[in-house]
């Protein structure tokens, strides 16, 4: 509790009769970038709305900056939220959008002017102050929404799918922008995203959520290399997951003998391989090429095997296989990720 800046304790969140989040506890450190990651319906947005004060918890407690805000209304929580849709005010100029919250604070005009200018400059929009949101590009609108929240100097800044509406190039730009802003302001940021790449790229820590529960709380490196459950492994790109049975490995199509790696402890329920961890061209397993796609540095294969479908990446320089070719492959123990029973 000591280093928790945002503290969620046994939070139960519901819409009507539907419990979206049954019992969630999470501590976020000050100045941290943390992501709530998961597929739609996992409770990540619900949790974010609860932190913002837009949804009252059924049970539990929310603390922000050492203050119990469970019963504090959204407009007095000092929490910023950058909406996925940006939710800019279309009838106001960029300047007035940013000044909106400051004006409500009954600040002096000169102070509002100064802070608004600073806010627009922070996101590089000072030259567009007179524009209306509709006259700005998607990326500019996003930065405007960011500036509008930042000038309020929130304790926590929540971002709902901040990169999902941007094209690939803008995405990279915005990612850098968010990290730069975070370093400059030191604001604690909580992202909500369904995109594992986005979460891995941006976060200090990732909260992987599933059905309203925390599936795994880890660093990006930890989650990427050592997912602990089948769900987590699947989410971070381990596309080949097979149950460990006494005879070897069991897939949807059948069971094959397999040498279970020595370093794996006894309670392993399954082994998982990324497409890049599958060795194509040699090994004791046999498969038939069912699909192939060139992806620059690699060639991505789909193989039909006795286990079922295998996704495997081979170096682009390796021998080129065609659909229908028989090929040997291996699921090497050294590239396997052991998964627990959960």
């Amino acid at each position: 509790m000591s280093d928790a800046f945002v503290s969620l304790q046994s939070l139960t969140l519901a819409y009507g009769d539907t419990i979206a989040v049954p019992d969630l506890s999470l501590d976020v450190r000050q100045g941290e970038l943390i992501s709530l990651l998961g597929p739609s319906g996992c409770g990540k947005s619900t949790t974010m709305r609860a932190i913002a004060g837009l949804l009252a918890p059924r049970a539990g407690r929310i603390g922000i900056a050492g203050r119990d805000v469970t019963r504090v209304p959204a407009n007095r929580r000092n929490v910023g939220l950058v909406f996925q849709s940006y939710a800019l005010f279309p009838h106001l100029t960029a300047f007035e959008n940013v000044a909106f919250g400051l004006r409500l604070k009954r600040m002096r005009g000169a102070e509002i002017e100064r802070r608004t200018r600073d806010g627009l400059a922070t996101v590089g929009l000072d030259h567009l102050a007179r524009r209306k949101p509709a006259e700005m590009s998607g990326g500019q609108q996003q930065r405007l929404a960011l500036a509008r929240s930042l000038v309020m100097e929130p304790d926590v800044l929540l971002l709902d799918e901040p990169l999902s509406n941007l094209d690939a190039r803008l995405r990279l730009e915005m990612r850098n922008e968010l990290q730069r802003v975070q370093r400059a302001t030191g604001v604690t940021m909580v992202f909500v995203t369904h995109d594992q790449a986005e979460a891995l790229a941006l976060s200090d820590r990732i909260v992987l959520m599933r059905d309203g529960r925390i599936e795994q709380l880890d660093t990006p490196e930890g989650l990427y290399a050592r997912p602990r459950t089948r769900f987590a492994a699947d989410f971070v790109g381990f596309e080949n997951i097979f149950d460990v049975v006494p005879e070897g490995l069991k897939g949807p199509e059948g069971t094959v003998p397999h040498r279970v790696p020595h370093r794996v402890p006894g309670d392993v329920a399954a082994l998982a391989w990324r497409p890049g961890g599958v060795r194509v061209g040699s090994g004791e397993l046999r498969g038939r090429v069912a699909g192939v796609a060139f992806a620059g540095t690699t060639r991505e294969y789909v193989l039909d095997s006795a286990l079922g479908r295998i996704r495997a990446d081979a170096p682009a320089g390796a021998e080129r296989l065609a659909i229908g070719d028989q090929v040997a492959f291996d699921l090497p123990p050294e590239t396997a990720c052991p998964l627990g029973t959960a």
Binding site: N75, V79, L81, F83, A87, L104, K105, M152
Partner: peptide
């Protein structure tokens, strides 16, 4: 909701 979070 954005307006509310900005203090309205």
């Amino acid at each position: 909701e954005a307006a509310v979070l900005l203090g309205c």
